[in-house]
Simulated assay, not measured.
Amino acid sequence: MLNSRIMISSSAVPSAALDLLITQGFDTTSVDELAATAGMSRSTFFRRFGSKENMVFADQEMIITHVKTTLAASSVSATQTLIDAAHVVFDQYTMNPEAAQLRHRLLSSVPSLRERELVSTHRYERAFYDFLSARELTNTAPHRALSLGISAGLVAIHNDHLRLWLRDPSATDREHLAADVSLFLDRFADLLDPNHAPKAKSSKAPRVVVSVLDAGDDEQAVLDAVSKALREHRD
């Protein structure tokens, strides 16, 4: 199993720069001000980020790359690999609580950044789908549809846990995330891990017990005859 706690390099986005964008306003903050706050020159800022928007999402670019590497390098089951990948994203966001909180506040107040966030969400979904495709789990139309649903569901569960953590870090953790992801993926065990999927129990064929009675036998005689036949059948 991959060590999903391996971290990428320290945050690419200076917390002071995010704080400036929140307090001063995204549109009214200049690149020169951001560069000075981040302790770099204007030219260095543009070489590293390219734009204010790219700076806000620089960490996310690194995380997506890390997720793709985790998925491609995995040799364990599809289910465990997807759990590991969910951990990668969660760990990277929560390793720097200050930056995560600032970024969340900034995205909540700038519509254009929220739109960029939606694009990033689809990129995570695509990374998971491409992994399932590489495992040859999307070769039929039904399996393709299931894989699309799995990819979207995995992102939705992760984002729900991240929102819980942003509101209250004690509300969830990576173990709770893994439990919910596992519960979700278990529903697709026949696709993700067919060799280990639980087999449905075969139902036993109904048994027919025949009793021969004399015409005119009363109710008690019928019950006695049926009881005797059942006992003989069990024996």
Rank of each mutant, 00 (worst) to 15 (best):
H158G: 02
V119C: 12
D130Q: 04
H87W: 09
R103S: 09
P111I: 05
G149I: 04
P169T: 01
R103T: 13
M95N: 11
N96I: 09
R116L: 14
Y129R: 11
F90K: 00
I150V: 13
A85R: 00
Y93I: 10
S74K: 04
A141P: 04
P169N: 03
A141W: 14
S109T: 13
I83N: 01
A141I: 11
A99Q: 06
S112R: 11
T81S: 12
Q92M: 05
T69Y: 04
V89S: 10
Q101D: 06
T121C: 12
S77Y: 13
A152G: 10
R144E: 06
R163V: 01
A145C: 01
S147L: 03
L82V: 10
P97R: 11
S77I: 14
T79I: 06
R126N: 15
A127H: 02
M95R: 15
Y124F: 07
P169E: 07
D168V: 08
A141F: 14
H161C: 00
W165S: 06
H122N: 09
Y93M: 15
A156R: 05
A127N: 04
L102T: 13
A85C: 12
R123P: 04
A145H: 12
A145M: 09
T121R: 10
T94P: 02
H158C: 09
L132N: 01
E125F: 13
K68E: 09
N96A: 12
W165R: 01
Q80I: 10
R163F: 05
V76N: 10
M95H: 04
P111V: 09
S133C: 12
T140S: 14
T79L: 05
A100E: 10
Y124W: 13
A171V: 07
F90G: 00
R105A: 07
F90H: 06
L166A: 08
L102E: 01
T70F: 09
F90V: 06
S170G: 10
L137S: 01
A156C: 03
R114M: 15
A78V: 04
Y129C: 00
F128H: 00
R167A: 04
V88R: 00
T121K: 15
Y129I: 10
T70E: 02
L118F: 15
Y124V: 04
S109L: 02
I157T: 08
H104M: 15
H158D: 08
D130I: 01
L146S: 11
Q80A: 06
D130V: 07
P97A: 15
V89M: 08
P111L: 08
E98H: 14
E136Y: 02
S74H: 11
N159P: 07
T121A: 11
A85M: 05
A73C: 09
A156I: 01
T140Y: 07
E98P: 14
S108K: 05
H158S: 09
Q101S: 03
S170D: 08
L154A: 09
Q80M: 07
L148S: 09
E115Y: 12
A73Q: 06
H122C: 14
R135Y: 03
H143E: 12
A156S: 13
A86N: 02
